Simulated assay, not measured.
Amino acid sequence: MDGLSLDDQVCFAVHAASRALDAVYRRELAELGLTYPQYLVMLVLWEREPVTVKELGRSLRLDSGTLSPLLKRLEAAGVVRRDRSPDDERSVEVRLTPEGVRLRERALCVPRRIAEATGMDVTELTGLQHTLNRLTHALAHSTS
């Protein structure tokens, strides 16, 4: 075997798992009116706010060209607002609206439902997350 079989490719295993996970998230997040990338933005904001657009991009590993339309849609949905920073006119801060705060309560069931869909226990999921974080870190540093 020369290693060029599709089933031997780590990249394909990660890709296939990501697509399957995206499908489960899509189903769960539809009830909240969020896409997966929008959910990630909301997770950051539910954890800490206000957050500058620059900080949000860094946290989510997204560039401003990807992030701006996401924020625009979330703002149109009434769950976030963007304001110029009072400390730095060039910086834009993102905050939750009261509706965005309420949305958090509705989202509390999402992690449990995702975990159930994987068929894995907490130990397995924690180990997988640790392994994927190590993989991401190693790959990011191999290209720099």
Rank of each mutant, 00 (worst) to 15 (best):
D2H: 15
G3L: 06
L4V: 01
S5H: 14
L6Y: 14
Q9K: 06
V10W: 11
V10I: 13
V10K: 06
C11N: 11
A16L: 06
S18P: 00
A20L: 12
V24N: 10
V24I: 13
Y25H: 12
R27N: 07
R27S: 14
R27L: 10
E28V: 07
L32I: 04
L32W: 09
L34G: 09
M42W: 00
L45E: 02
R48A: 11
E49D: 07
E55I: 10
L56C: 07
G57S: 03
S59W: 03
L60C: 04
D63A: 09
S68P: 00
L70T: 09
L74Y: 05
S85A: 12
P86Q: 06
D88Y: 01
V92C: 02
V92P: 00
V92Q: 05
V92S: 12
P98G: 14
R102A: 15
L103V: 13
E105R: 13
E105K: 13
C109N: 09
V110M: 11
R113E: 15
I114Y: 05
A115N: 02
T118G: 06
G119V: 01
M120H: 10
E124R: 12
T131N: 07
T131S: 13
N133M: 06
N133T: 07
R134N: 08
L135F: 13
T136L: 09
L139S: 01
H141V: 00
S144W: 07
